[in-house]
Measured scan of single mutants.
Amino acid sequence: LNLKQAKEEAIKELVDAGIAEKYIKLIANAKTVEGVWTLKDEILTFTV
């Protein structure tokens, strides 16, 4: 999975969960695949 694909998957998951745009922007700015997954997990843990 490359960075672009990771971001697309994570953003789709966050949108489906009804997460606010400000958190989705954090994913869009992530620099690594690991960073994308870590941010996604943290956002889902603390906002859902």
Rank of each mutant, 00 (worst) to 15 (best):
K31S: 13
L39G: 02
L26E: 04
E9R: 14
I24G: 03
L44A: 03
I27Q: 00
L14Q: 00
K22Q: 10
A30F: 02
L1A: 09
W37I: 12
K12D: 03
V48G: 13
E8P: 01
N2P: 10
K7Q: 10
A20W: 04
W37A: 11
K22Y: 13
F46P: 06
Q5F: 07
E9F: 12
G18M: 05
V48T: 13
W37P: 00
I27M: 04
K12Q: 09
V15W: 07
T47W: 15
E34F: 06
A10C: 07
G18R: 05
L1K: 10
A10G: 02
K4I: 09
T32N: 05
D41S: 09
A17L: 13
E13H: 08
Y23R: 02
K31L: 10
I11L: 05
I11Q: 04
T32V: 01
L1T: 09
T38H: 14
V48F: 09
G18H: 05
A20P: 14
K31D: 11
L14H: 01
K7M: 14
T32S: 08
A10Y: 01
T47E: 11
D41M: 13
I24Q: 06
L14I: 03
N29Q: 11
A20Q: 10
I24M: 06
E42K: 14
A6P: 01
V36I: 06
N2M: 13
T38Q: 14
K22C: 14
I43H: 01
I24P: 00
N2V: 10
D16T: 09
I19W: 04
K12E: 04
I19F: 06
N29T: 10
I27L: 07
I27C: 02
L26H: 04
L44H: 03
L1E: 10
D16V: 10
I27H: 00
L39F: 04
L3V: 05
Q5R: 11
Q5H: 09
A20G: 11
L3D: 01
T45R: 15
A28F: 11
T38V: 13
I11V: 07
I27F: 04
I24K: 03
K40W: 07
I24E: 02
I43R: 00
N2Q: 12
E21L: 09
I19P: 00
E13M: 14
Q5E: 09
L26G: 04
L14E: 00
E21M: 10
K12F: 04
K12T: 05
E42I: 14
F46S: 13
T47Q: 12
T32R: 02
W37C: 07
E21N: 08
